[in-house]
Amino acid sequence: MGQMDSVVGSSPLLEAENLSKRFGGVHALKGVSLTLLPSEVLALAGDNGAGKSTLIKIISGVHHADGGSLRYAGKEMKFDNPHQARDCGIETIYQDLALADNLDVGANVFLGREPVRRIFGLPMVDRRLMREEAEKTLRALDIHIHRLSSPIGSLSGGQRQSVAIGRAIHWKARVLIMDEPTAALGVPEQRKVMELIANLKGSGVGIIFISHNLIDIFQVSDRIMVLRRGSKVGEVRTSETNPDEIVRLMVGG
């Protein structure tokens, strides 16, 4: 459905085919396929335990699939770890944000990739560069954080979320994966994050986004894929469906 009327020349960023995964006796994912185009927001819906997190963890290199294949930018890929996926441009915003609360914005944006300058031959982490670059990226995304040099534990949930997304964009993510990005936020902050996602669409990034919130899903997604007990039970364009249909797909019957 999605591909038929997609713009000519925008070949898929991501094509997953028949991915499956077992955890001991639990068949968490049973042959799920997925396609993501540039500038597209794909929402993953499904009840608890449906396999949504497992699916994105395979794509982002956290889990290895037991079966199936993954093509990224037209090339067959097999990520051994999240670092490899990140290096290729697949960034994940985790539920727990994967931010270090005791470090400032710059240090978090550059976590694990700190720039180094040499002073008298001694390598030193370049904090000023980290702060300036972080600020630049955030400003471009219309994110305004005043306390750039205090630990981000002192920021609000929405601001922390923005830092996490800003970090992904800073590192030129082409695929952005978000697992319940607004789950821990108050309503005004949820709206801010949704606006941010909508803004990102223009930049060519492909976004996969897991949510329990149908209002959010209908507000920003282009396509909705529904999982139930590890299987894909539906995939529809957001403009051609309604919340009732999605709920029916989620619960089955």
């Binding site: 770890n81 999240p82 670092h83 990140r86 994940t92 985790y94 727990d96 944000l97 994967a98 931010l99 270090a100 609360d101 005791n102 470090l103 240090a107 978090n108 976590l111 694990g112 990739r113 700190e114 180094v116 001694l122 390598p123 030193m124 982490v125």
Partner: peptide, 28 residues
């Protein structure tokens, strides 16, 4: 003092203590 406050290693020690999962996911 130099190692802790100026090197990437030092920075990573703080990250590990702050949020070890964040450190792992950042490829540290």
């Amino acid at each position: 003092h130099y190692i802790l406050s100026q090197t990437r290693y030092g920075q990573h020690i703080y990250a590990i203590g702050g949020n070890v999962n964040a450190a792992l996911r950042a490829g540290i």
